[in-house]
Structures are given as structure tokens and as C-alpha cells.
């Protein structure tokens, strides 16, 4: 046996460890989980490095295999893509020129985003948060919106944990709140999660008109998410017990298909 202690000492140490955990927990509870525990950060830094290394090795071997298999077609594919790229660039340039003429604006704002990969998830509840492989060194800051590959809303950055990792709070988290608007009836409310696949569109009066099947978009009123990002579709409407309706929204993003995410930089 590795550790030889008397029964009494073992029990005492066990109680001591439990008390230590309770102390750690009780320090965080009144201050909120935004408080960064230095211990947590250090453990995360060590293990995320290992995780990152393994993911990179996995991606490398996967790409190596994939590239080897398709190597024969690479040259033809490259020529085809170059032509396609040229066509798209020309099309983009022409459209920009047209848009400038129509809207009389001098320059168009270029979309600014970072592509991040999902490297971790909250194992206690998969609908709460996830971890991406971009952090402080990539310019990731608190409250930046996060979208999936189809440009549907996934959540927002809550905390860049390290230089290379950040935590994303999903819109399905019970503590998440997104200023939202419906596409047809233009009802304005707040979208919150309930730790399942569904979200709830809150603060819509019982008298207000709203339809099942309507699309829910960000309203831009919360100052975090830009207006017009697609969130999901209304799947259920019930009359609530209080002043408001109970509206269930099914988000567009699919957790099991999330691999690459877009972090919108402001």
C-alpha cells in the first residue's frame, strides 16, 4: 500500500479534505463564479496544454491521412479553387461597388472574427458551457458573441481562462440572457436557457401577438450581441400563469455538431 496510516488518521484526513473542499466552495459562492480561482487556473493550464497537444496530434494525423489519400487530386483541386476564388473575389468587388453606389457609403466594414475549435465541455451539464482553443493572446475578451459554422448564435465568452483557452457560456445555460426579437411580429424579449436543448423567450405579454414557427433573432438591445443573428425557432407557446406567455424556442445550433466556432470581435 502506498500510504500507511492508522484508521483514525485516515478518517481525520478524509474529514479534513472534505472541509477543505467546502471552504473552497464557500469562498466562491458569495462572490460568484466570475471570481477566478488561481488554483483552478493553474490546474486548467497544465491539463489544457496536454489536451491541446493531443488534439493537435489527432488533427495532424487525421490531416496527414486525408491529404495522402486525396493527394492525387490536389493539383486539379487547387486549380479549380483558384479559379473559384478569383471569381468570388471579382463578384465581391462588384457587389461592394454596387452597394457603395446604392447606400452611398464610403467603405464597408470588414467582418472581423476568429475561428476557434471546441476543446472541452462542462461534463456536469453539456448545455451550460464549453471551452475553446482561443484565449487572451488571440484578443478574446469577455462578452464576445460566439456563432457556429452556419452563423447561428451559440453563446458568448464569459472568461478567457488563459492565453490559449476561453470559456463560452451557451445560450442554453439557465444564467444566459440574450436580447431577442421575433422575425415577423417583432416581439421583443429576453432569451434564456434551462439546461436542456430548449430555450425560453421571456417577458412577452399574454396579449402580445406572436406565432409558433417564427424565427428568433438577436435584438442588439443587450449591448453584447449584434442585431440580426439567428438564434432559433419558436416551437411552443403557452399562456403563462402570470402576465407573460411561456414561449419555447429550439435553438438552431446543434451541440453534437459543434466543432469550429466563430468568435465575433468587436
Amino acid at each position: 500500500m502506498l500510504f500507511t496510516f492508522s484508521k483514525r488518521k485516515k478518517v481525520l484526513l478524509f474529514i479534513g479534505l472534505l472541509i477543505l473542499h467546502l471552504v473552497i466552495i464557500s469562498i466562491q459562492v458569495p462572490l460568484g463564479r466570475e471570481v477566478s480561482f488561481i488554483f483552478k487556473k493553474n490546474i486548467f493550464a497544465v491539463f489544457s496544454t496536454i489536451q491541446n497537444f493531443v488534439y493537435k496530434s489527432y488533427s495532424f494525423s487525421k490531416n496527414l491521412w486525408k491529404n495522402y489519400i486525396y493527394l492525387r487530386d490536389t493539383s486539379q483541386e487547387k486549380t479549380k479553387l483558384e479559379k473559384e476564388n478569383l471569381r468570388l473575389r471579382a463578384e465581391n468587388w462588384l457587389l461592394n461597388m454596387e452597394l457603395k453606389k446604392i447606400k452611398k457609403i464610403k467603405s464597408l466594414a470588414q467582418p472581423n472574427f476568429i475561428i476557434a475549435e471546441v476543446i472541452g465541455i462542462d461534463s456536469m451539464n453539456i448545455f451550460k458551457s464549453l471551452i475553446i482553443n482561443k484565449g487572451r493572446s488571440d484578443g478574446i475578451r469577455k462578452n464576445l458573441p460566439v456563432l457556429d459554422e452556419n452563423h447561428d448564435l451559440v453563446g458568448k465568452i464569459v472568461e478567457p481562462i488563459s492565453d490559449n483557452q476561453a470559456t463560452v457560456q451557451l445560450i442554453t445555460d439557465v444564467e444566459s440572457g440574450v436580447g431577442s426579437i421575433t422575425s415577423e411580429t417583432k416581439a421583443i424579449g429576453v432569451l434564456t436557457g434551462n439546461l436542456t436543448k430548449k430555450c425560453f423567450f421571456k417577458y412577452i405579454y399574454r396579449t402580445q401577438e406572436i406565432h409558433k414557427g417564427e424565427e428568433v433573432l438577436t435584438s442588439g438591445m443587450d449591448g453584447i450581441f449584434p442585431r440580426g443573428i439567428k438564434i432559433g425557432r419558436i416551437t411552443k407557446i403557452k399562456q403563462g400563469k402570470d402576465l407573460f406567455k411561456v414561449i419555447e424556442v429550439t435553438p438552431y445550433f446543434q451541440l453534437n455538431k459543434l466543432e469550429n466556432l466563430l468568435v465575433l470581435m468587436k
Binding site: L2, F14, H21, I24, I25, F39, K40, S48, M124, E159
Partner: peptide
């Protein structure tokens, strides 16, 4: 390895698990 080894590995692995969740640190540790 018995109670001693069990509780120490439990503490370490629980805290590692906690560090990867956006939750209160120490719950899985406990």
C-alpha cells in the same frame, strides 16, 4: 490502494474535472 490512496486520487481528479467546468470549483473534488 485503500482509503488513503482513494481519497487523494479522488481529490486530485475531482479538482481536475472542476477546472474544466464553468461551475463552482470544488464540487467534483468533494
Amino acid at each position: 490502494g485503500g482509503e488513503m490512496q482513494g481519497m487523494l486520487t479522488g481529490t486530485v481528479s475531482g479538482l481536475v474535472q472542476d477546472s474544466f467546468t464553468y461551475s463552482i470549483f470544488g464540487i467534483s473534488g468533494f
